[in-house]
Computed example of a mutant assay.
Amino acid sequence: MSLRERKQRRARERIVEAAYDLFAERGFDAVTVADIAERAEVGRTTFFRYFGDKQEVAFADEQRHADRLGALREAATGSAATLPAAMVLVRTIVCAISGEVVADAGRYAAHDRLVERHPELRDRMHRKHDRLVGELEELLAERGAGTETAALAARLGIACFEAARRTAGGDAGALLPALRRAFDALGTPAPDG
Rank of each mutant, 00 (worst) to 15 (best):
S2Q: 10
L3I: 11
R4F: 02
E5D: 14
Q8N: 08
R10I: 11
R10Y: 01
A11I: 02
R12K: 13
E13H: 06
R14I: 06
E17P: 02
E17N: 14
E17K: 10
A18G: 07
Y20L: 10
Y20P: 01
D21I: 01
D21N: 10
D21Q: 07
L22H: 05
L22A: 05
F23T: 06
A24H: 04
A24S: 14
E25G: 06
E25L: 09
E25N: 04
D29M: 02
D35Y: 00
D35P: 07
I36G: 03
R39S: 13
A40E: 04
E41S: 09
V42Y: 04
V42Q: 08
G43Q: 01
R44K: 15
T46E: 14
F47N: 11
F47H: 02
F47K: 06
F48Y: 15
F48V: 06
Y50L: 12
Y50S: 08
G52S: 15
G52Y: 08
D53C: 10
K54R: 15
Q55F: 09
Q55Y: 02
F59D: 14
F59P: 12
R64A: 15
R64W: 04
H65A: 11
A66M: 10
D67Q: 13
D67K: 07
G70R: 13
R73E: 14
E74G: 13
A75F: 03
A75Y: 00
T77I: 05
T77G: 14
T77N: 11
S79M: 03
A81P: 07
T82V: 01
P84S: 12
L89K: 07
L89I: 10
V90A: 13
V90C: 13
R91V: 03
R91S: 06
I93W: 04
I93Y: 02
V94I: 15
V94C: 10
G99S: 08
E100T: 05
V101P: 00
V101S: 01
V101H: 02
G106Q: 01
G106D: 07
R107A: 03
H111D: 07
V115I: 13
V115N: 07
E120P: 06
R122I: 00
D123L: 12
D130G: 12
R131F: 03
L132P: 00
V133F: 00
G134L: 07
G134K: 04
E135K: 09
E137Y: 02
E137N: 04
L139S: 06
L140W: 01
E142F: 04
A145W: 04
T147N: 04
T147S: 10
T149H: 01
A154Q: 09
R155I: 06
L156D: 05
L156C: 09
G157C: 02
I158Y: 03
A159D: 14
E162W: 00
A163F: 10
A163S: 13
R165K: 11
R166Y: 09
T167K: 12
A168K: 09
G170D: 02
D171H: 03
D171G: 03
A174P: 03
P177V: 05
P177R: 01
A178L: 08
L179C: 04
L179H: 05
L179R: 05
R180N: 11
A182K: 12
D184K: 06
L186V: 08
G187E: 09
T188W: 07
T188C: 15
T188R: 10
P189A: 13
P191D: 09
P191S: 08
G193V: 05
